[in-house]
Design a protein around this nucleic acid. Structure first.
Lengths: 227, 227
DNA sequence: GGCTGTCAGTCTACGCCGTAGACCGCGCGA
DNA sequence: TCGCGCGGTCTACGGCGTAGACTGACAGCC
């Protein structure tokens, strides 16, 4: 093993990201990672305690890549920018993103993204409780959309076609059949814009009313309520 | 191995569902399933070709459990009922649901659910293209919300607390800190209703305009919301 | 020089995993 | 009676994550 750059936590995380994106999560193994690093599988354990820790660091690093919206721009633009950032991340790191989305543990780097989202929603006039609820709403939209896109790419070929089309022949699905041409006309950008538009319209409408769904128990006499 | 009920595809799928929900996806193995069935691991292969096929059938069976909304009720109620059905499914089959959501292959049983959703959205006055786009929007909302809930339960204890709270101590997150009490007041039902409300308001507003984002070709510079 | 400790990386081995392929006993039609 | 297919079993292979012992290079100190 001549003149190989020394193993570092950073190099491991970067290489793991690459392997994950190129090979997919289920083909990612310690042995494969070590091979890519030109190193014995056990060498990695000098720097990170186990496979789970490696994956966690990969996710942290990926989320840390997310650009934050300009706090000076209007709140809708900021929410939109966050969604776009998530979608771009999914395109850049598909393997990582598929791990990230249903990931059960909290990610440190996500805090700043959340903070930006909260601030935008508050500026949009949402009551505190609704701003708190808005974050998963926005995140889930962007992430879910991106995951659908990734699944579609994976499916190939004929990217525009409806994945269920082949199954349609049996049953009785008039609406689905009617909408098939719409779905075949793949325009992810327009689709994404549609969902974002619906979300923002909904949030704006909600902010307009000034109301909030009453919390379960009136235990707490409601803190800072007015914007 | 005395007087054991005969192995059938159905029994395998049912037992696999149970094991998956109780042990989680990463502890689900052919050997564990076979043990639960009281049978040699290889016996299962007489009925289903491999592990992936078993998981696929488990997902099909789970999705087939989804109740369909009453086609006579108003469209908003129907969309809401679909979301609730997905959430209930997640509660009933957490292990399965975690597999279901980012699942890349199409599920036959989902066709009827999609059909119901399309019909509701069309009845809500959405243009065909938007009805097609609305389905993933609605599904992703319900599924994403349910996944968040599952992750929260898994995390335990102190279910109401913000998972990031412990990480907050370091940085500067005024909005997050301000909303912390809101987030600690866990009321999933109200949270779910909020998101649904936002979604339905957005969809209704969108239907009201009668407009639809133009499909790719005529290079309309931007949708109603430039990102 | 030798002695010691530390650090980076390697080697071996264990117990899991999915599943290919040979095998076995039984019931049934001929 | 025979043969055969069907349901189930056994053995084995290659790959997995990682514990634990090991090796060599180097630093500090006498």
């Amino acid at each position: 093993m001549p003149d190989r750059p020394p193993l570092t936590r950073d190099r491991i995380v970067r290489e793991a990201t690459r392997v994950l994106d190129e090979a997919g999560a289920d083909r990612f193994s310690m042995r494969r990672l070590a091979l890519a690093l030109g190193v014995d599988p056990m060498a990695v354990y000098r720097h990170l305690p186990n496979k789970a820790a490696i994956l966690h660091e990969v996710l942290e690093a990926a989320v840390a890549e997310l650009p934050l919206p300009d706090p000076g721009s209007p709140w809708q633009e900021r929410v939109g920018a966050l969604c776009v950032a998530y979608r771009d991340l999914a395109h850049r790191h598909p393997g990582v993103f598929r791990l990230l989305y249903p990931y059960p543990r909290p990610i440190r780097a996500e805090l700043v993204v959340r903070e930006a989202c909260f601030a935008a929603l508050r500026d949009g006039g949402l009551a505190p409780a609704d701003a708190a609820r808005g974050w998963p709403l926005v995140l889930n939209y962007a992430a879910g959309f991106a995951l659908d896109e990734l699944a579609g790419w994976e499916r190939l070929p004929d990217p525009g076609s409806d994945p269920h089309a082949a199954l349609l022949t049996g049953g009785d699905f008039p609406e689905t059949r009617r909408l098939a041409p719409e779905m075949a006309r793949a325009d992810p950008a327009a689709d994404f814009a549609f969902g974002l538009d619906v979300l923002l319209r909904g949030l704006a409408a909600r902010a307009g009313t000034g109301e909030s769904v009453a919390p379960a128990a009136p235990a707490q006499p409601e803190g800072p309520n007015g914007a």
